[in-house]
Every structure is written in structure tokens, then in C-alpha cells.
Write a protein that binds this DNA or RNA. Sequence first.
DNA 1: CGTTACGTTGACTCCCGTCAAGATCCGTGG
DNA 2: CCACGGATCTTGACGGGAGTCAACGTAACG
Lengths: 248, 248
Amino acid sequence: MTLAQTSTDFTSCSDCNIRYRAVCATCDTDELRRLEDIKYYRTFDAGQPIMFEGDDMNFVASVVSGAARLSRTLPDGRLQMLGLLLPSDFIGRPGRDTVTYDVEAIQKVTLCCFRRKPFEDLVATTPHIGQRLLAMSLDELDVAREWMMLLGRKTAREKITCLLSLIGRRTASLHLQPIADGLSFEMPMSREAMGDYLGLTIETVSRQMTALRKDGVIELEGSRIITIPDLAVLMAETGDDADGGMLA
Amino acid sequence: MTLAQTSTDFTSCSDCNIRYRAVCATCDTDELRRLEDIKYYRTFDAGQPIMFEGDDMNFVASVVSGAARLSRTLPDGRLQMLGLLLPSDFIGRPGRDTVTYDVEAIQKVTLCCFRRKPFEDLVATTPHIGQRLLAMSLDELDVAREWMMLLGRKTAREKITCLLSLIGRRTASLHLQPIADGLSFEMPMSREAMGDYLGLTIETVSRQMTALRKDGVIELEGSRIITIPDLAVLMAETGDDADGGMLA
DNA sequence: CGTTACGTTGACTCCCGTCAAGATCCGTGG
DNA sequence: CCACGGATCTTGACGGGAGTCAACGTAACG
């Protein structure tokens, strides 16, 4: 068992798979060179903590590959997942020096890290990074509020179908597959992680998955491989407008 | 009944009560002058819609006084409040041209408005505005995630006590009163609005308020005036760390 | 007054959490 | 190859917390 590693590998920013989606997306060559000067890579295995709530925030980072999650835990142990971090997502907050959520790898994850102070200097002096960070923060805010609607007002079945639709569509677009009936994908998270994300217990998640299977809304191969025979049927179960989810 | 009004009054930015908290907080005199050139005031009465989801976003604005709310409604009518907008909070999103939530006045509210396009030009050319907007967006993101924890994992009683603690502390600090036992304040929202914010029905809100009164956690004078005889008792009911809520 | 919005309370239902027992999968080692 | 143990997932029984439906107070306002 190894702890987090600081990689000796070095990928040029121009060859990076998140070059045009991450915080550096709109940087010109000069700005990119300045970022490149201060970046370093770290990897974490699935299940490893990346930051703890209350820690000093020594670095900020972009997710290059894999997946991580943000969560917070109440004193009595109740846990709520607050965000899912996928390639190109940004971890950390310039201008704040302690971490406000737990961050944990849920798959093997590689981060492109920047020590916080030099990065903050860059934000202050290179307008493109600040602008990009603003746009990304506003996107995250939309996602968080969408999730508030789900957590506050949706039923267990609606929560599950929303998550399946989300993961299915994102996985398809990541692999450049069409979003159409018969869509099949692997769920990247355990039943427990699904519950943590949706504000449900593991038993309720499992029961709803079984119910959806029996109702023909989904097909299961093992517990992780999911096929959607009819997307419209799935979308009709999410509680959202039928067309709202079909776009994009 | 009047609709929203474009005020003929004009308050100089240097005299504005949100001068050092709003999006203009860190502007220098030149930047402030450019903002002043394009601003105009509008007021809305309690209950009036300010923007509808799906509308063109013609303007962005700062709340100068009063209160508004962000909400979204599912096709079948279920509603979730997604944000509470108080003086100095910002409405709208540069870079997006349609509104993504309903915005409604919950008290008589005055907005300092900027047409979107000129404002976006300012964001692109005056670094202080963009930086301030970033900091404010990140604060909002923290608030939204705090609320996700509440909506996903807290009981009705915990949700209510969290809200009472939030409103009580903010009202006290607004009026420069000490946050101490015996704190008394007026609830600025109806039972229905509380339910919309907390993901509860109006009946559950009402029952929990009665239970808290019977248990001596709060005292009620009418339905809106609330006194907290012992803050520590209230905080112990929120589900958070006892100290977490006492700071700030 | 009557009207209307707002708030409280009661009776009942049901969804989801809790507790518990199995089932299934998988890697390890004899 | 099979046995074992642990993690993950499923299923059942049961209870409670919050939603629903309905009636009744209460306050504000014409």
C-alpha cells in the first residue's frame, strides 16, 4: 500500500487531455508557461483522502484523470457528498487558507497541483485564469443548486433515476458515444457512494435499483453495468421536464 | 398595484450602504465611475417576480435593500428555494444569456441594476470587479453546499433550528446587537417560505415550531417574533458541532 | 362585520430508515 | 481446485418521521 505519490513524470501542458477544459483552458502561451513552471503531479488510489476539512490548504489542483469527491460529515457521523470531481474539475479555493470539505479519491486519481501562494499570485496577475475560474465556479454553483432541488424535493426513485441519467449521459459523451436508447455504461460508484450523494441509505438505493429493474426501466448486468432500453422512460421518472434532460 | 419601477432617485456610489460589501467593494474611483455611468435603480414589492427561469437575462444587479429569493419549480409544482438574496448579494451571471432560476422579491427590494452587456465588458476590462465576483461566487458555493448537507441529511427539527440560528445571528449582526442568550428577532419569512427553503411542508414547519416552543428552546410572540432564551440549547439541536455555529 | 391569507392541530398514510439475515462476488491461500 | 473470509449487495420485517387531507383558529384589512 503506497501513500500519495509525487510523480516524476512530466506531461507538457500542450499535450494535456484537459488543456481546453480546465482552469488553464483560456490561457495564452505565456500564461501557460507560468503555470507549467509551478505545477507538479500527484496520484491517489481509490479510497485515499486528499484533503481533510480543517487542514491548511497548501495546494490547489486540477483533476487530470480519475474521480474524487467532496463531502462533509456531521458530528454524529451522518455524511453527505457535496460534489463529484471529474477530469478538468478544480480543487481548492484561492483566497482561503483552510479546507472546508473532506476531499477523497473514489477512483485512482491524478492531480495537476499548484502550491497555493504562487497560484494566487498568478490569479491576481493573469486575467485569463481568474476569468476561467469565475466561469467554472458559476457552473459549480449551478450544479450545487440543481442538487439542492434533488435533495430537498425529490423522491428516492427520482433521485436514483436522476443520477443514472447524469452518469449515463456523461459517460457516453466522454467516450463519444451517442446518447440513445440501449445506452450502456458502468456505474463508477458503489451503492454506498450513491446513497451518500443522494441523501439516501444503502438499502433504499438497492431497493430502488431492484424496483427499476423489475419495472423494465433499467437492465442490470452484475450490480454496476447498466443498460437503459428506453431513455424517455428513464427521463419520465426523474421528475424533471422530459425535454430538460434530453438537451445537451 | 404598481409593477416594478425604475427609480428616478440617484444615490452616489460613495454614499451607498453596500459600497464595501457588494460586487463594487474593491473598485477604485475610476472603476466606480464606470459602474456609476451604467447603473440604474429598480424596486419591487414583496411577492413580485424579478426574473423567470428561461427569460433573457437583460440585466444583472446588486441587492441594495430588502430581500429576494432564488427558486426552481418541478413540472408538478414542487418548489425548492435555492438561495436567499440580501443586501450586497449579486443577481445574475455574466456570460450566460438566459435566467436559470426564478427570482422573486420576498420583501420590498431595491436593486442596483446594470445592463448585462456593458457590465460584461466591465468585468473583462476591470480586474477588481472580476476578482470580487469570483470571491462572492465562491462564498455562495459554500453556502449552497452547507445547504445541501442540511437538505440531504438533517431532520425536520434540525433544519428548523439551523434556520432560526442563521436568521437570528444575521439579524443581530445587521443591527449591531450582541449574539447572546435572550436574543430576539423577527422572522422575515412566512411558514411557507421556511418550508420552501428547508424542503419541508408548511404543516411540518408549524408542528416543529410548536414542539420547540413547548420544549423551551424558543419563545414565540405571535408567529414571527422569536426569542432564544439559551443559545447553546438551540445550537445543540442543529446537529452541527456546538462550536461550529458559535463562531463568527 | 365578512373576507382572505396565514398558521395550528388532528387523523391517517406511506415512504424511507433501521435492524437483521442472507446472497453474491472476489481475492487469497491451503 | 476448493475453502475461507471479507466486502458488497439484496431482501425482509418493522417502526417512525414527515407528507397528505381536512378542519379549525387567528390576524389583518376592507
